[in-house]
Design a protein around this nucleic acid. Structure first.
Lengths: 124, 124
DNA sequence: TGGCGGTATGATAAATTCATCATTCAATAG
DNA sequence: CTATTGAATGATGAATTTATCATACCGCCA
């Protein structure tokens, strides 16, 4: 089983890039955010929340598992997922902060280059 | 120019996935870590540090620029890069912490499943 | 103009994504 | 016990995206 950690001695930046690769898909980010609150969520719930097909969801869950970002737990006939570490939540939080920063700056730049006041009512 | 922010109103998790996509390559992680200390680094330095070909490096720098993770500044005949926001450094830091956590846990699991003591000398 | 430092382009190779189908596992009906 | 249903996973291949490499290009300064 490819676990992305077998070569624990390989360059750190390669391992780190792999971590980001695991996060680099909208569906997977969405799933992680659904798990953010903390309590386990069943695959059924994830499917109904996202509207994805079961097999499609399972594929992404498998990627998240491989990257050790989530853990699965079987309860009777259903499988529940949760974040593997609280640090995963931290990572998403920091990403959100960075994104907010980027968007804000970009917006300011747009506004200043277009010379369109952002908050006051345009005269024309 | 595709800037990954044009549709600022599109789903947040898609924008966030894009951010991670920008980080999801060993070379780009490596470059960001070289920029981590804070002072601008010239492309020449980045090239000699990594051993990459100029065009190859430039491509990755272009990706990082598109994702607003770095900014370039021209000084005479050379171009210097630095992190676009301190939050980028935060992101890398959190990623490192998470990775350490994952590696530690995985190692413990390996040790316990193989029943090989980690620190004491094996008897056979 | 020539040369150095970077950048953009385009073709090919490789990895991801996505849809479809088959399989496994648990619970329950017959 | 066996068949069946619901829940989830796994496997295959086509389509799309991304990475890689070589090459051509641009801007600055001597």
């Amino acid at each position: 089983m490819e676990t992305f950690l077998s070569g624990a001695d390989r360059p750190l930046y390669e391992v780190k890039a792999n971590l980001f690769k695991g996060l680099a898909h909208p569906v997977r980010v969405r799933v992680l955010e659904l798990l953010l609150p903390g309590d386990p969520v069943s695959v059924s719930e994830l499917i109904s929340e996202t509207g994805l097909e079961a097999s499609h969801m399972s594929q992404h869950l498998s990627v998240l598992r491989k990257h050790h970002l989530v853990v699965a737990e079987r309860r009777a006939s259903q499988v529940f997922y949760r974040l593997a570490y609280p640090e995963v939540a931290d990572l998403l939080r920091v990403a959100r902060i960075l994104l907010a920063q980027v968007l804000e700056t970009t917006h300011e730049q747009l506004v200043s280059t277009m010379r369109l006041p952002a908050l006051s009512a345009p005269s024309a």
